[in-house]
Structures are given as structure tokens and as C-alpha cells.
């Protein structure tokens, strides 16, 4: 006996895309049903912008800025915005962590695993949806930035490249988030574990202060931290101040290093997450 109304066969890749899109659509639809969560996801980066722009603004000098303008708050805001962009997209990981941990705990993953669907599609769809949601977040953030004095100074093409780079990074970290979400024992842990590694990673970077302001040993870490490269590349592409030039290859080839990092991280974490998914029992 076989199911009625079955669609004709497709190659495996075709079904993977088909199933991923269904999962992605459901994930996005579901996320709009939790207005509070969406609100806080949008408000958090906005608060960061306002805090840094108005509270710390003048206190952080931008080395390499034109003499006499180091303390200019509008300069810091231009410097700051790409940092906030970078930090914000890094938090896209948390949505995948929490979402998958919840799906696992509720047993919905069991249902997916008992369906004749493409199994990696559950993760591909989830990570894709959470990265795509960043489009909305980046839009709100850009408007806020514009209000506090941030500008796109280097043309629309570069700006689009900057946004694409940010989205690529978002997609990359959602795979790490997916792996973490499938590894934690329950949703409570997911809520903390999903965030705990992102904060140090974003602060040990050039997102908010030039890395030359960090102690030397941390400078090395920050220079190889993909978030630093992402932020540096974004600054360059938006035509925002980048701070003093450094000797680090990673920062002098920021866009390239970002793309390489993303590819490497996905190449490591996507298979890990898929394997975890296949073996994970409902907890």
C-alpha cells in the first residue's frame, strides 16, 4: 500500500531544495507568530546603537582618523555601525540553537525523522530561515544608524556587497548555532549556551574598539577572529572609517578572509550538525 497523491520522483538534490524551502517557510511563518521575540530581536541591536553612539561615543578615540577629529562623535558612529552589524548577525546563531533545541525537546524532530523527506533539509531550511530573517534586522538597524548619523559612503554596489557579506556570515553562524542546539541537553541550556560564546567573540574583535587598543595577546586572537574581518570588510565597503591600518593579513584582505572563514566554518559545522541530527535521540 503506498501513499496516494505522491509527486513524481525528483533527483535527491531537487527534493532537498523542495524540503528545505518548506522548512524555511514554516520557520519564518512561526517566527512572526511570536511578536515579542521578534520585537526584542529588533530592539536589542537598536539599544546597542544608541548606547554606544550616545554613551560611549566620544570616549573612544579612532586612531588613524584625521588629526583633530579623534573625538568627533559622528566619526565614532560611522565606525561603530559596522561593528553593530557584525555583532547582530553573529546573534543569528542563537535563533537556530534555541529553535532546534525546542524542536528536539518537543519531539517534532522525531516526526521529521520518520518522514520520507530529505533529512539535512530540516537543518538547511532552519539555518536559511534564520539567516534570511536578518534581512529585516539589518533593515531596522540601518535606519537607526542613519538617524544617528551613519552613512553609506562608497556607492550602492559596495553597500550591497557589504550586506551580502553580513548575510553570508549570518548563514555561517546559524550552522554553528544548529550544532550547539542539537548538542545541548534541553531548551534551558540552549537559551544560555546559544548566546554565551557569541558575546566574547564579538567583544574580542574590532567591532567596538580598534584592535590596537587590546592587549597584544588578545590582538592576535582578534585579528584572526572572523568577526573582525567581517567588520573590517563591511567598514571598507560602506566607506566608513576603519581605524589605523594593521599588519595582519586577515584584516588587510578582510573580505577574502571573511569568505574563506565562512566556507571553512560551514564545511566543518554543517556535516557535524547533520551527523548530530541523524543520531540525536529525543531528549
Amino acid at each position: 500500500m503506498s501513499a496516494p497523491g505522491v509527486q513524481s520522483r525528483r533527483p535527491v538534490l531537487g527534493w532537498t531544495i523542495h524540503d528545505s524551502l518548506i522548512i524555511a517557510r514554516s520557520t519564518i511563518t512561526a517566527s512572526f507568530r511570536i511578536p515579542e521575540a521578534l520585537f526584542f530581536q529588533l530592539i536589542q541591536p537598536v539599544i546597542f546603537v544608541l548606547l554606544f553612539a550616545f554613551v560611549f561615543g566620544g570616549a573612544i578615540p579612532i586612531p588613524g582618523a584625521e588629526p583633530g577629529s579623534e573625538g568627533d562623535p559622528s566619526l565614532y558612529r560611522e565606525y561603530l555601525m559596522p561593528g553593530i552589524f557584525g555583532q547582530t548577525v553573529a546573534f543569528a546563531a542563537a535563533a537556530s540553537t534555541v529553535g532546534l533545541a525546542e524542536a528536539m525537546q518537543r519531539g517534532i524532530i522525531d516526526r521529521y525523522r520518520a518522514l520520507p523527506m530529505s533529512q539535512p533539509a530540516v537543518l538547511i531550511g532552519n539555518t536559511f530561515a534564520n539567516a534570511l530573517r536578518q534581512v529585516l534586522v539589518l533593515t531596522v538597524l540601518s535606519i537607526t544608524g542613519y538617524i544617528v548619523g551613519w552613512r553609506i559612503n562608497d556607492g550602492i554596489v559596495n553597500a550591497i556587497l557589504a550586506y551580502l557579506l553580513l548575510l553570508l556570515f549570518a548563514y555561517t553562524v546559524t550552522w554553528v548555532g544548529a550544532y550547539v542546539g542539537l548538542s545541548v541537553p534541553n531548551t534551558e541550556t540552549a537559551n544560555t549556551a546559544g548566546l554565551i560564546w557569541i558575546f566574547p567573540l564579538t567583544f574580542l574583535s574590532n567591532a567596538f574598539v580598534p584592535i590596537t587598543a587590546l592587549p597584544t595577546w588578545l590582538q592576535y586572537f582578534a585579528a584572526f577572529n572572523p568577526i573582525s574581518a567581517l567588520v573590517q570588510a563591511t567598514r571598507e565597503l560602506f566607506g566608513n572609517p576603519t581605524g589605523a591600518p594593521t599588519d595582519y593579513w586577515t584584516l588587510n584582505n578582510a573580505a577574502l578572509y571573511t569568505v574563506i572563514s565562512c566556507v571553512v566554518i560551514i564545511a566543518i559545522f554543517a556535516p557535524l550538525a547533520v551527523r548530530k541530527y541523524r543520531t540525536a535521540a529525543r531528549k
Binding site: A3, G5, Q7, I22, S26, L115
Partner: peptide, 14 residues
Amino acid sequence: TMFGGLFHLEKNYV
């Protein structure tokens, strides 16, 4: 609708 789609059933049927 979601589970029907993941079962690879036709839209109208689902």
C-alpha cells in the same frame, strides 16, 4: 500542509 509537503504529496491533494 507542511507535513503533507514533506511527505512529497501533491499540493491539491494535501
